[in-house]
Each structure stands twice: as C-alpha cells, then as structure tokens.
Design a protein around this nucleic acid. Structure first.
Lengths: 226, 226
DNA sequence: GTCTATAACCGGATAGAC
DNA sequence: GTCTATCCGGTTATAGAC
C-alpha cells in the first residue's frame, strides 16, 4: 500500500507529471475540488495510470507534505546556522512554517481533516507518516540543541516531540485564521514561543518539581503507547 | 442547511426511524461502512426520504453526538449532585465521557476526522455545532462552580472552555487507545485531572503571576478570534 | 405545503485486457 | 505501465402522493 517507485525512465516521467499536476491543482482549486480525473488529464495520463503510482488520492497529500517540509527546511537554514537564542530560533522556525504553508492555506483545511482520521494511512501518528514525522522531530531537536539554552536532560528528551505537537496545534489555529496577512497566527506564535521558553526557565523552581516530573512522565507514557 | 423538523405525525415517525437505523448501523459497522442506502433500507424508507430529513450523512453524526452527550449528562448527574471536591468531580466527568462513548469506539475515529474538517458544517468550532458546544461548556462550568474550590475570577472565566478543549484532547487520545478496557486512557485521565487541579492551586504563586496572566490573555484572544 | 420515491449524476476506486 | 470499462456510494433532481 505504499507509493510505488517507478522502474523505468518512462515511469519516472509519468510519476512526476502526475505529482506535479496534483500539487498545481490542489493549490488552484483545493483538495476536494480537485478530481483524480482532472489530475490524470493535466498530467496527460489515464485515470488508471494515476492509481498505478499513487494508491489513493490521500497518498498524493503525503508528497504534498514532504514538499512543504523541504521548503520549510530551506527557509530556516540560515537562521539556525547563525542564531543561538532559543526563543528566537523557536519563533523563527514556527513562523517559517506558516509562512511556507501560506500558499496552501485554502487547501489546508480539508487536507488536515483527511489526515486527522486515525484510519487514514497518512495519519501523522501512524506508520506511513513516520519517516516524515521523524524528520520534523529531528528538526526541533536541532532547534533546541543548537541553542545556548541549558535544559535539564529529562525535559530535553521529550521537548522535540512536544514541539512537533505544538507546531501541529499552531497549524490548526492557522487553518481557521482569516485575519489579513494571517497576523493573528503570527501574534499567537510570538506569544506562545515566548511563554514556552519562559516556562522552561521556571521548570527548575522547587515548587514545580513535582508537577514537572509528573508531566514529563505523562508525556513519555503517552508517546510510548502509540 | 439545518436539520429539518417534521411537521406531521408521519414525518416524525420517519425521522425517528432513520435516526435510529443510523445510530444502530454506525455502531454495528462503523461510519464509513454504513451507507445511506443501508440506513434508508433499515428505516424502511427510500434513499430520497432520508435526505429530506438529514441534508447529509454528516448531519446524522451531529445527532449521534447529541445522543452521547445526553447519556453522559445522565451518567454524571448523581456525582455532580453529591460531590464537592473539584478533582473528583472533574475526574468523574471525564471518565464518564469515555465510558459513555465506549460502545462507539470503533466509529469514533472516522467520525472525528469528518468533524475535524473546518469546512464541515459539523466542525466543533463552527456555527452548526454551537448549541451543543455551549451545552458542553456549560456542563464544565457546573463542574467547576459546584465544587468547593476557590478559583480566581480571571481563571474561572476561561476554565470551562479550556476544559472542553481538554475533553476533546482526551477523546482523541482515546480513539487511538487499543489497551484492554481502555485502561491507558483512564490512567491518563486520572493523571491529567490531578495535575490540572494541582496547577490551579499553584497559579497563585507570585513567580507564576506573569505567565498566568499571559496565558489567560492568550486563551481569551484565541477564543475571541474564532 | 409536506412527504416519498425513482432515476440520475459525480467522483474515488478497482478489474482486467493489452 | 497504460488503458477502458465498471463499480460503488454520497448527493441531487424531480415527479408524484398524501
């Protein structure tokens, strides 16, 4: 049920044409309004051929995600290379997510819902999405580790995964955001990243020790059970 | 685009038959495997008639939600009448949610995804779902207000809505839970409700004042923008 | 005006010939 | 690897029945 890898030169061309047509049409018309027939049409292949390369319409979305992830990586590389302050790194990284995804804002809603379905092969918590999920988590690991913030090991162990979750929450908010220039989302990002870094600093307070331990244990056990 | 209200005795019967058939079939076969044709069949009406009462398959889900909400209310009424401790009230209420929904566990995944779509008329943040959402939020208001916990007004103002969100998060976790008797979810509930109450107690600490204020402001502004 | 039914449309997915 | 033909199910159009 995975995405087929073409074996021939001709196959490579077809596959690329289908994917390209899909990405274009998703942006032009949205996910639901884009029919598999229209994708095949624009790619210059038959409907059946599209299904030879992509087992379902949803699988085209996974490629769509990978596409935006790569744009995102490219966008933040300079920042991560130069900046050491955690709050700035985090804010820049999350801001870049929504900026990168902006051209796909109209599509994002229906895609999100498709993907939120636990039965979907593309569910972010599921197996098919694991490679991409691991890449994103690794990115947040770099965001934290490349900073000059000193974070206790029990926290830093769970932090990248938690930040990945946080990124998804921001994206869900962004989907609903109808404000001009998506300013509301940017404000929320600034406020939350700042708050997160502040709370990381407070986590060492003796009064919070107990809650911190329990929260980390909880996150760990939740992650383990999926 | 709302759900039609029958005007005649006969219409009332048909509507009830369709809804009953749908609820049964959702439980027996799941949401996706239940076809509108099968629902109409079991209800003893034609396909066209079903659409006279429910504009779409999704709208049957809204009724499904209302159904479980009423079961939930009935289940916790005794507890809320007798108990004063906030942690116990909250734990009992959330536990009752997953216990009530247990018969629908298999269905819940696909339903959740349908409903997560911001374009869906049933999106919990959207207009069509508002009446039911308000009822659930009101329930959490009662959970808090009926307790002997003394909570600052800036917090208690946002708390019911936040607990509604928390309930949704628990439900999403529960959907993935494959443990016997759904024990994992119950453990997570016990741990999180306890943690929430503990943190509410800590919120008065001077060191946390700033973060508390910012967090509340954030929640309020997020809520206002939807 | 309210309800019911039949027939058709549309788009995702599949079968199977070449 | 590519195609055509077909299935299947949500939805709609519309004509008639109470």
């Amino acid at each position: 049920m995975a995405i087929a890898t073409p074996k021939t030169r001709r196959g490579e061309t077809s596959r690329a044409a289908i994917l390209g047509a899909a990405l274009d049409l998703f942006q032009e018309r949205g996910y639901e309004a884009t029919t598999m027939r229209a994708i095949a049409d624009r790619a210059g292949v038959s409907l059946g051929s599209s299904y030879h390369y992509f087992p379902s319409k949803e699988h085209l979305v996974l490629e769509f995600y990978r596409h935006t992830h790569e744009l995102h990586l490219a966008a933040i590389a300079p920042l991560l290379g130069r900046e050491k302050d955690l709050a700035v790194r985090l804010r820049g990284t999350i801001r870049a997510v929504v900026v990168t995804c902006e051209p796909f804002h109209a599509v994002a809603g229906s895609i999100f819902s498709t993907v939120a379905n636990p039965a979907s092969p593309l569910n972010p918590f599921g197996g098919a999405a694991k490679p991409l999920r691991d890449e994103v988590v690794a990115l947040y690991d770099e965001v934290v580790r490349g900073s000059d913030a000193r974070i206790a090991s029990d926290i830093s162990e769970m932090l990248p995964l938690t930040l990945w979750l946080y990124q998804m929450a921001i994206l869900y908010f962004w989907i609903f955001d109808r404000s001009p220039g998506r300013l509301r989302t940017l404000e929320v990002i600034d406020e939350t990243t700042d708050l997160i870094v502040k709370l990381l600093g407070l986590a060492n307070l003796p009064v919070l020790r107990g809650s911190r331990k329990r929260l980390l244990g909880l996150i760990k056990s939740v992650v383990a059970s999926t």
